[in-house]
């Protein structure tokens, strides 16, 4: 039996909103040691999503037997919208479940809402995701990255990211004209989450699909900062850290064969 109780529904609500536009169907893997993990590739097979919610993400967590819960994320999202962000949220499944029980409780305990979501059999490869060497790692405010990704998409389908030791430059070249935004590395000791940190082994110049970057920044409400790891001719990693877990996106850059 699985029983995972979140102190607030907001984490799960934000996580599902962050991935449901990239992936329609996915398996939730549940185990006592790892908590809940998800690995899914978007339909165009260019973006890989990896979610980890450790048992420490939950107020209470038990999972007697490893479970795979196949879910339609649009349906899950409909149910999660029924609860308030500050409600307790509990996910419950039997050992051989055909449905997932989702329970919201008002913090004053005077309202309990229960929903049952039908599960599906979803065929998906489980991929090995190793830690990768990277040419550079950038940590910046998640909102600043989201603004650049959204603004630049209006100019071009592609966004070029150029990193040097003291700045990150985003460049868009479209039919109406061009644009660029430079963010300089800075350390803000008063407010560390406002810092822009660049750890550079090698300068980087990579181009990504603006559509995918806009899918990735849907995770912005989950974390104050995003860490981006870039390597020439390798998938980039965008990481949003959660309390006791993470949501990572791996995006293949665009390049000529």
């Amino acid at each position: 039996m699985l029983e995972g109780k979140f102190e607030t529904a907001s984490t799960m609500k934000k996580v599902i909103e962050a991935i449901k536009d990239s992936v329609k169907l996915c398996n939730l893997n549940c185990s006592q040691n790892d908590g809940i993990t998800v690995q899914a590739i978007d339909d165009s097979r260019v973006l890989l999503i990896a979610l980890k919610l450790d048992p420490s993400c939950f107020q209470e967590f038990r999972c007697d037997k490893d479970l795979v819960l196949g879910l339609d994320l649009e349906s899950l999202s409909k149910i999660l919208r029924q609860g308030n962000p500050e409600d307790y949220l509990t996910l419950i499944a039997e050992d051989s479940p055909d449905s997932l029980l989702i329970v919201f409780e008002d913090s004053k305990k005077d309202r309990i809402s229960e929903f049952s979501l039908k599960l599906m059999d979803i065929d998906s490869d489980v991929l090995t995701i190793d830690e990768m060497e990277h040419d550079c790692a950038i940590t910046l405010p998640a909102a600043a990255f989201a603004k650049v990704a959204r603004d630049m998409k209006t100019l071009s389908e592609s966004l070029q990211i150029l990193v040097t030791k003291d700045s990150v430059k985003f460049k868009a070249d479209g039919s109406i004209g061009t644009g660029s935004v430079i963010l300089r590395a800075r350390t803000n000791l008063d407010d560390t989450k406002e810092s822009i940190l660049i750890d550079l082994n090698k300068p980087v110049n990579l181009t990504f699909g603006a559509k995918y970057l806009n899918d990735i920044v849907k995770a912005t409400p989950l974390a104050d900062t995003v860490t981006i790891k870039l390597t020439d001719k390798a998938p980039a990693m965008f990481e949003y850290k959660l309390q006791g877990g993470f949501l990572r996106y791996y995006l293949a850059p665009k390049f000529e064969d």
Binding site: V46, L47, P253
Partner: peptide, 14 residues
Amino acid sequence: TVQQRLLTNFFKPR
């Protein structure tokens, strides 16, 4: 596409 090949080359099925 090149992008799809890149992703599947990096992340092999377990």
